[in-house]
Structures are given as structure tokens and as C-alpha cells.
Amino acid sequence: MSRTATGVENEAGAVAPAPAILSAENLSLVYPTRRGAITALDALDLSIRRGEFYSLIGPSGCGKSSLLKVAAGLLPQTAGTITLDGSAVTGPRREVGVVFQRPTLFPWKTVKDNVLLPAETLGLDKTAASARAAELIGLVGLDRFAENYPSELSGGMQQRVGIARALVHDPEVLLMDEPFAALDALTREHMMIELQDIWMTTAKSVLFITHSIPEAVFLSDRVAVMSARPGRIVREYEVGLDRPRDLATMADSGFAALCGELRGELQFDL
């Protein structure tokens, strides 16, 4: 097995080999606040290919969550366009599944009912949705906990419920905002491997936000580095490591080299 990691910088205007599922052009977001306007995103361009695992890494407060909220249709942009599957995003869309940093589960619903939330809100067929929920709960390894309440689960398990929920309506795109940030190092590694499994079985396009360099490199096809606020993408790296990647991949010299390069780029901006 050859593991070669090459950080290839995309030239501006380079043609993506596959059609974009999610793209932003000249995207700006300004928060009007009492103490003046805060520019969170400034003329940001980005293009995620269909089926791609795309990570966004950047210093905290650079506008990563803001970008995700705009992409999810939760926040209107100030200028520019954001396009999902060929049409402009103007509000929440059913082709999208979202996972936040906190698990954000309903404490009064069982694991299964939490996972079923998008099926209920989108009015999907109950029997089919129920079967799919059970399947996804199995996929994230929580079979025995389907009837438990969130408070009875560990943080990692809760986050897995959130991931299953984001997949239950079979969205095209998964938007994930630092989903593993609150987990301990060991759980986080488990979750990385599991998420890779899920991604490989479900073939979703993923926008993954993180502030962990190894996490980004391990999971992604491409990693984008964002500048400090106002957020722009300063550089994109292709990750050429073979899949499926495992814990040994992280000891690989190519992995380390790419991590080092990313770290340099990030520090440059800090």
C-alpha cells in the first residue's frame, strides 16, 4: 500500500474535476452589532465536489460556523452567492444534514426519536423512516441504546446520535461544525474512524469544520485553510492518502508532512 501525501495548492480558477455540489462565490457575511459591524466572511470562494470530504480549518472566530450557517440556510449572507446542488440557497433545504459542535439532542426524546426528527419534520413515510433510523443507529454502533434517553449516554455516543440524525433523510450534503471538538482524544480517534466508515458507506458530500489539523488530514479529500477574521480561504490542500485510513495512517510520514505544512500555514495567519 503506498501512502503518498502531497499538498497541492489549487491555483485560483482551477477547474474542479467533478461538478460542485456546494459552492460559494464572493460570499460575505456581516453581523450588524451594537458596537458596529463585524465582518465574519469576506469575499469567500469555495467549491466542494460531489462525494467529496472537504474540511475547513482556521483559527477560532474566523467565521467557520458562520459559513456553515449560511450554507445550511440558517443565516442569509450579506453579499455573494451560495449554491447547493445547482440552485441558490435561500433557506434550509432537505438535501442537507447538519451536525453541530454540541450534540443538541432533545433530552425528552429517546435516541430513536431523536434520530427520527428530520423524518418527522420533513414528513417522510413513517415505516420506511423507522427502518432507516434503526439501520443508522446500528451504523453508529448504538443498537442497544435506541430506547435510551440522551442523558444516559456519554458525550461520544450523543454525538453519534447527532450524526445518525443528520443522515436519516438521506441528504446529499452533510454539514458538520466541529462535531468532535468536545470529545476526549481517544473517543475522538474512534469517531474519526467511524465517520470515515460512514462516509465510505453512504457516499455523502461533507463540509467538515474543525480546528484539529490531524483530524482534517485524516478525514479529508481536501483541506482548506481559512484566514483570521474576516474569513477567506487562503489555501487548499489535496490529501492523497489511500483509504480506508486507519490509526497507522497517522504514523505515516506523508501524514506528518502534510500536518506540518498545514500548521505552518495556520501559524502564518495567527
Partner: peptide, 15 residues
């Protein structure tokens, strides 16, 4: 954030 999540999944006001 719970409300954001509901919105992200197009939940109705009643829901």
C-alpha cells in the same frame, strides 16, 4: 441551538 437545529430540518412552527 435546538431551535436552529429544528430550523435546519425545516420543522414547522407547530412542531
Amino acid at each position: 441551538e435546538l431551535l436552529d437545529l429544528c430550523r435546519a430540518f425545516s420543522a414547522s412552527r407547530r412542531y
